[in-house]
């Protein structure tokens, strides 16, 4: 049970139950669909960029607790940030999940997002946690009505 709690932490379960920014943005500057063909999870990230900053960010879609809470916490983390900061956050998050178990990661930059460090131990689930982030990355790259796939 203890190692399960490392994956399914309270914060993750809470965001799964009540995802933040779970809505569409009508005047989004970018909208990208992310798809994980392995499990069929599908989500859309909406972005509104103005003056090099994330003015608004949201998501819609369905998925497992890991992918949904990751998307929710991602929107909270990048809201109001500059595009550059959001990109650095993406890199730090990706590095945390691709590093070896117990290896140091940029905890300072990641803040609350560090709750996902436990996903490392579940190779089959890493893509669940990174789906929203890869989709955001594609949206930041300016994809309107684009789509990304984890495969």
């Amino acid at each position: 049970m203890s190692d399960l709690r490392e994956l399914y932490q309270e914060m993750i379960l809470e965001h799964n139950k009540q995802p933040r920014n779970f809505r569409e943005i009508q005047d989004a500057t970018a909208r990208t669909e992310g798809f994980n063909p392995l499990c069929g999870d599908r989500l859309t990230v909406y972005l509104k960029i103005a003056g090099g900053r994330v003015k608004d960010v949201s998501f819609k879609g369905s998925g497992c607790a890991i992918s949904k809470s990751s998307a929710s916490m991602m929107t909270a983390a990048v809201m109001g940030r500059t595009v550059k900061e959001a990109e650095h956050l993406f890199q730090a998050f990706r590095d945390m999940l691709s590093s070896k178990k117990g290896a140091p990661f940029d905890a300072e930059r990641l803040g609350k997002l560090a709750v996902f460090s436990g996903v490392n131990e579940y190779p089959a689930r890493i893509k669940c946690a990174t789906l929203a982030w890869h989709t955001l990355r594609a949206a930041l790259d300016g994809g309107t009505d684009g789509s990304v796939s984890t495969e």
């Binding site: 190692d3 399960l4 994956l7 399914y8 392995l38 499990c39 069929g40 998925g63 497992c64 607790a65 890991i66 579940y122 089959a124 689930r125 669940c128």
Partner: peptide, 20 residues
């Protein structure tokens, strides 16, 4: 979600398939 179920079952040594 089925994948959450599958991951937790695996922690109890129960191997099932999840997905489509």
């Amino acid at each position: 979600h089925a994948h959450d179920v599958g991951t937790i079952l695996d922690r109890y040594g129960v191997a099932v398939r999840t997905g489509h």
